[in-house]
Nucleic acid binder design. Structure first.
Length: 239
DNA sequence: AAATCAGGCAACCGCGGCACA
DNA sequence: TTGTGCCGCGGTTGCCTGATT
């Protein structure tokens, strides 16, 4: 007998899987990952789905090189909090803990080593900034601009029904468009789903039914704002 | 042009904490 | 109050790609 565990896929995600996950998250929200994993038809664990969403598919993520400001902030916050990557990430909208962690390990440690070997110990931390100033700074690509492309409910339902052929031929660009579609960027950096969801009977999710993103910008890192917006009314528009 | 090496990044794993029955 | 399941975090691994020899 083959258990569910045995069938679970691992490794790199395909574009088709990404699209399935995006559609499912937009239907059911980004909280109950076990449920999302099951409903999506992906042979992935909830954990894996969450990781993919949080680190790659999330609409508010920036993709690109760290800006000097971000680097400076990372240095500062790491000095203050150490390896509390998720905490640091909350201060850098659009950056994930994983991204910051990787960045620190590759760039900063290397530079720190270089500094200890070929620079005088009297150098202040500002030398970190001088190093990065020679990097080519590209404008951060924020994949969330309030664009209003469409994703029809037919798309979602067919995706969930057939799980595959619909997505054949989808490019990453199209997937990004799908992600961006329902996002409305408010002046407060809060992103609301404007899909009339749920389109299918709601699971017992408790807290909410719709995906939403709120990048935390204030000083209190201990609270996410999301649960404060009254989701989970069952069929209400998500705003 | 081919082989090797190093860096960067995506993904997995294990653990702790929290929520709920 | 306790047990169970899920989520989130930090650490680690492995693959891919570009640089170097």
């Amino acid at each position: 007998m083959v258990t569910v565990q045995d069938e679970m896929r691992k490794g790199p995600w395909t574009e088709q899987e990404d699209l399935q996950l995006v559609c499912t998250v937009r239907l059911f929200g980004d909280r109950r990952w076990d449920f999302v994993a099951k409903v999506s038809g992906l042979n992935r664990t909830g954990k894996s789905c969450r990781l993919r969403w949080v680190n790659y598919l999330h609409p508010g993520l920036k993709h690109g090189r760290m800006s000097p400001q971000e680097e400076h902030l990372i240095i500062e916050l790491h000095a203050r909090w150490g390896n509390r990557w998720s905490r640091i990430a909350r201060r850098l909208p659009g950056r994930t803990d994983n991204e910051i962690k990787n960045y620190w390990r590759t760039h900063m440690r290397k530079k720190a080593q270089e500094r200890t070997t070929d620079m005088s110990p009297s150098s202040s931390s500002s030398s970190f900034i001088t190093y990065q100033s020679c990097l080519v700074e590209t404008a951060p690509i924020i994949r969330m601009d309030g664009g209003r492309t469409h994703i029809g409910s037919t798309c979602i339902s067919s995706v969930l029904k057939s799980n595959q052929s619909v997505m054949d031929g989808y490019s990453m660009d199209q997937i990004w468009k799908e992600i961006e579609a329902p996002a409305i960027l408010t002046p407060n950096d809060k992103i609301y789903c404007n899909l009339p969801c749920p389109l299918v009977p709601s699971p017992p999710m408790g807290d909410r039914d719709c995906p939403e993103v709120v990048w935390k910008m204030d000083d209190d890192e201990t609270k996410m704002l999301a649960p404060q917006f009254g989701y989970g009314n069952g069929g209400d528009p998500c705003y």
